[in-house]
Write a protein that binds this DNA or RNA. Sequence first.
DNA 1: TGGTTTCTGTGCTGAGCGATACAGAAATGG
DNA 2: CCATTTCTGTATCGCTCAGCACAGAAACCA
Lengths: 202, 202
Amino acid sequence: MAGPGRPRSFDRAAALERAMRVFWERGYETTSMTDLTTAMGINSPSLYAAFGCKEQLFREAVALYDATEGGPVTRALTEAPTARDAVEAVLRHNACAFTQEDKPRGCMIVLAATHCAEANTEVRDHLARWRCVGMRELAQRLDRGVREGDLPAGVDTSAVASYYTAVIQGMSVQARDGASHATLTKIVDRAMAAWDAVVTVH
Amino acid sequence: MAGPGRPRSFDRAAALERAMRVFWERGYETTSMTDLTTAMGINSPSLYAAFGCKEQLFREAVALYDATEGGPVTRALTEAPTARDAVEAVLRHNACAFTQEDKPRGCMIVLAATHCAEANTEVRDHLARWRCVGMRELAQRLDRGVREGDLPAGVDTSAVASYYTAVIQGMSVQARDGASHATLTKIVDRAMAAWDAVVTVH
DNA sequence: TGGTTTCTGTGCTGAGCGATACAGAAATGG
DNA sequence: CCATTTCTGTATCGCTCAGCACAGAAACCA
C-alpha cells in the first residue's frame, strides 16, 4: 500500500466526512475553501493534493452522503414487501433523518445547490441528476409493486413518484426551517393516508 | 414631488422589477452586484443611493415578488367558497406560475436563499419568515373552513397546512429542475385526490 | 547512506466580491 | 446669476475567494 514519498498525515476518509458535513450544512457556493480546510483540519495544498478541487471534493462528498445517508433509504425501498410499505418506510425514515440532533437538517441533495455561480452550473446539474435518480428509483419500486400485484395495473407510477418526491423535498425545506420530527411525522401521516386516493387517480 | 438636486435618471420601480427577476433566477448569494447593475442598467453608486445595500434591495425584491406573484395566491385563498376549493386553486395556480415560459421557475421565496454566507443569516431567516407566513395563511384559511362548516371540527389545520405547504415546496424544487406543467398538474391531482383522507387523519 | 518521491506548511497570486470617494452634471431656490 | 442639493460615471477601496509556488520534511528504494 505504502509507496515512496512522504505519507499523508491525515485520514482521508475522516476528512471527507467532515467536508460532507460542511457542504450539507452550508451548501456548495456558500462554503469557502477556508471553511473546508478548517473543518477538515488540513491546509489548502493538502486538500488540493488529496481531492483535486472544490467541485471534485463536493462530488465525493455527495457520493459519500448517498452511500451513508441514502443507503438506508434505498434498502428500505427494496426490502419492504409492498410498494406502499416501501414508500411509508422511506417517508418515516426521512422524517427522522431530517431532524437528527447532531446532523444538518433536511436532505443534502435537495438543499446543497439550489443555486450556483454562472461558472458552476455543473454542480447544480450534478445534484439535479441525483434528485432525478432518487425519483426514478421510487418509480421503479412502484413498477415492481404493479408487477407483483400489490398495486393495480395502469397506475401512473412516475406521477405517483413525482408526488411523493415532492412531499419529501418539501419536508427537507421545512426541516431546514426548523420543523420538528413531530411536524414531519404529521406530514407523513397525511401523505400515507392519501395512498389509496393517490394511486387510483383517473 | 421634485425637490432640489439632480433628478434620478432611471425608473426605480422598473429597476427593482429587474433586480427581483435576477434574485428569483439566481438566488441571493450567487447574484453579484455586477449581475444586478447590469440587469438594472445602472451603475453601482446609483444602486446604492436608491436601495441602500444588497440586502435591502433583496428585501424590497422579495416584497415586490410577494405583491405581484403572491397576490393572486392570497386572493384565491380568500375568495374561494370552501377550504378545499381554496387549496386546489392555490395548487393549480402554482402549477402554472412555477412553469411560465418567460419567468424563472419555482417560487422565489422557497428557492432564493436556502443557504447564505455566515454573515448573512438574516437573509435566510427573512425568507424563512415569509415561508412561515405563507403556511400560516393557509392554516388560517382552513380554520375558516372549520368555522364555516365545510371542514369537520377537530381537523388539525396546521398539520394539513404543513402537508400542502410541503407539496408546494416540492413543486418548486421540481419546477426548477425542469418539471413540466403537466408533471406539476399530476402532483396537484394527487394532492387533491388525497383531500378527504388528509383532513380526516385520526 | 544518498536519491527519489510525495506530502506539509507558509505565503502568495490574480480575480471578483460588496461597497465608496470623488468630481462633474443637472436639477432647485433665491 | 450663484449657492445648494442630489444624482451620475469613473475609478477605485479593502477583503475574500479558489487555487498554487516553493522549500522543507518524511517516507521509500538502492
